[in-house]
Design a protein around this nucleic acid. Structure first.
Lengths: 199, 199
DNA sequence: ATAAGCACTTACCAAGTGGTAGGTTGAATG
DNA sequence: CATTCAACCTACCACTTGGTAAGTGCTTAT
């Protein structure tokens, strides 16, 4: 029982990885298509254009993150527990799927990587960021704090969770795989401590 | 009294900004040259090739960061004070020159953005990262800790200092310039608190 | 049987890419 | 005065890019 349009799904997966690794401009449609084993025009058949492919990848990423957040919100009772649960799962996934944190950081860093003439369309990941900030604002420590304060915390937590996994490959080249392996263990326990401290 | 080769310097500046904003593959030699007001071949005259231009930009970034670190090491007596001084200056510069943190994060995230056939040439920013880690290892809290622990702290501090400035422009679009302005103030005071906490 | 539509394919194109070849200019040097 | 050299320039090239046109084969609905 194949899922609906398995080729489309595979294209989306491969495109996510390549876009995370090499960025929008560094990823060619032909390369993605070749990886999957179809023609470039098959890709355009499903996604219409490169910009729309990128949009689809980011939408998928946003949905994945949002689902992780919702699932975490059902795990814990307090906002603190929910955050713990979410970032634990994010870190776990990020360490083994490094393209996820890479893509997330790229989206945060990059300003208008893919220019889409239509300026009115929603910003990617916005549907994930807003509820995440809401959870942070529900935290005891940030009950009366400003929105900016919550946003700063969100950035801090996301950065802490994503930077190491995204940098993993490069760090292995710099300092050797052994150090990176130790670093991975540290990273997995670090995130809980992070939340508990005063940022 | 113009400095030596002012055109080269301007090319390097403009290339830094464009490479930070749009990445290696998103930056064309023609665009950089046009921004400066010279021909593409003038650029190639100075740097030889795109990969060498990229290398020159990263070398310049590494030197800038290293100089900031050395200057900070003369400011303070203890390793803690030195770190404080360095990250305070880094954050200050990063907030007003967003291309700097963007480029730094890109280098950390991106694995082999510009393939240079010669595999033996040194990794960019390595000359900055190693002394930075050394200072961190000299900290009281990390006196007996592993190298990986110090590296984790370095990543954490760099992420905390660079993520907001790099994301600044995008965040202004998402949440409005007012919030970003508040966030800037928070960011400037946050980094000291960061060092003091358990990471 | 046939029409429709999905899931692709090959063939092609205009624009842009990094890079080369071969100048030209003007100042410094012998 | 002749030469050399850095600092550019115009013209061009091979190649890749995203995207279009026009099919082909296969399944499904009528």
């Amino acid at each position: 029982m194949p899922t609906l349009a398995p080729t489309r799904t595979r294209l989306l997966q491969v495109a996510s990885i390549r876009l995370a690794e090499r960025g929008y401009h560094g990823t060619s449609l032909a390369a993605v298509a070749e990886d999957v084993g179809v023609s470039k025009q098959a890709l355009l058949h499903y996604f219409g254009s490169k910009a729309l492919l990128y949009r689809a990848v980011l939408d998928q990423l946003g949905q994945d993150l949002l689902q992780m957040l919702f699932s975490a919100m059902q795990d814990g009772q307090s906002a603190e527990q929910q955050l713990d649960s979410f970032f634990a799962e994010l870190t776990a996934r990020a360490v083994q799927d490094p393209w996820l944190p890479s893509l997330l950081l790229r989206v945060l860093i990059e300003d208008r990587e893919a220019e889409s003439g239509d300026a009115a369309l929603p910003l990617p990941l916005q549907d994930f960021l807003e509820p995440l900030i809401a959870v942070i604002q529900a935290t005891e420590r940030l009950k009366g704090a400003s929105f900016a304060q919550a946003l700063a915390t969100a950035l801090h937590l996301l950065g802490g969770a994503c930077l190491f996994p995204a940098a993993q490959a490069g760090l292995a080249q710099r300092f050797g795989p052994v150090v990176v392996e130790q670093l991975r263990d540290i990273s997995l326990t670090q995130i809980q401590a992070l939340r508990a401290t005063r940022q």
